[in-house]
C-alpha cells in the first residue's frame, strides 16, 4: 500500500479564509438540507395523520396485518447502524483509518441487511394480496377494506420514500469508503464521514417515526 506522507494541513477552498470556516459552512449547509428532508417527510406524515384521525378503526385493523415483529428487529438493525456510523465518525476524527473504514463498511452492511429484510416484507405482503395499486388484487378480509387500501397506500409510500433515502445514504457512504480508502487526506475523509453520518442518523430518525406511526400506533 503506497504510503505517501499524510497531508497534515487541511486543503481550503479559495473562497474560504480558514479550515473551521469551511467545516462550519459544510455543517450548516448539511443541516439546512436535513431541514428540507424533515419538511418533506412531515408533508407526507400530515396527510397520514389527517386520514388516521378520520379513519382510525380501518387504519388500526389494516396495521394489524403488518409484520411488526420482523420490522421491530429491522429497526434494531438500523439503530445499530446508527451507532456504527457515529463510531466511524469518531474514529475518523481520531485519525484511526482501520476503525473508520471497518465501521463504515459495517454500517453499509447493516443498511443492506435492513433493505433485504424490508424487501422480504414487501414480498410477503405482495403474496398476501395487500398491494392496493398497480391493479393488483386487494384481498383484505378485515373490516372496511376501502380505507384499508388508503392505509396500505401510505404504508408503501412512506416506507418506499424512506428506502429511497437509505439507498442515497448507502451509496454516499460507499463512495466515501472507496475514495477514502487510501487515506490520502484524512481531514477531507473526516469531514465527509461527519456529513454522511448526519444524513444516516436522520434516516434513522425518520424510520423510528415511520415504524412507530405505521406499525405500533395502530395495534
Amino acid at each position: 500500500m503506497t504510503s505517501r506522507s499524510n497531508r497534515t494541513t487541511v486543503i481550503i477552498a479559495h473562497q474560504f479564509e480558514s479550515a473551521d470556516q469551511q467545516l462550519d459552512a459544510d455543517l450548516l449547509g448539511m443541516w439546512l438540507f436535513l431541514v428540507t428532508e424533515l419538511l418533506l417527510f412531515s408533508g407526507a406524515f400530515l396527510a397520514f395523520s389527517v386520514y388516521y384521525h378520520q379513519y382510525s378503526e380501518a387504519f388500526s385493523a389494516a396495521a394489524g396485518e403488518l409484520h411488526w415483529l420482523l420490522a421491530g428487529f429491522n429497526t434494531a438493525l438500523l439503530l445499530t447502524s446508527g451507532l456504527t456510523v457515529a463510531l466511524a465518525e469518531q474514529a475518523a476524527v481520531e485519525n484511526n483509518r482501520r476503525a473508520t473504514l471497518g465501521l463504515l463498511a459495517l454500517t453499509i452492511a447493516l443498511g443492506l441487511a435492513f433493505l433485504a429484510l424490508k424487501g422480504y416484507e414487501y414480498h410477503s405482503e405482495y403474496r398476501a394480496g395487500l398491494i392496493p395499486f398497480l391493479d393488483q388484487p386487494f384481498a383484505f378480509d378485515g373490516p372496511d377494506p376501502i380505507h384499508a387500501m388508503l392505509f396500505y397506500n401510505f404504508y408503501f409510500t412512506l416506507t418506499g420514500l424512506h428506502a429511497l433515502h437509505m439507498i442515497i445514504g448507502l451509496s454516499a457512504m460507499g463512495v466515501i469508503l472507496v475514495s477514502g480508502y487510501r487515506w490520502r487526506d484524512r481531514h477531507r475523509v473526516a469531514r465527509q464521514v461527519r456529513i454522511a453520518g448526519l444524513y444516516w442518523a436522520f434516516v434513522d430518525i425518520v424510520w423510528v417515526l415511520v415504524y412507530t406511526s405505521l406499525y405500533l400506533v395502530g395495534r
Partner: peptide, 25 residues
C-alpha cells in the same frame, strides 16, 4: 408511543448528530 418515538428521535439528534455540542446557529 408517539412520545417514546419522539424521545428516541430527539436523543439520536442530540448525541449521534452531536447537536448538543454544535454551534448555536
Amino acid at each position: 408511543r408517539l412520545a417514546m418515538a419522539a424521545l428516541m428521535a430527539a436523543s439520536i439528534a442530540l448525541i449521534f448528530m452531536r447537536l448538543r455540542d454544535s454551534a448555536v446557529l
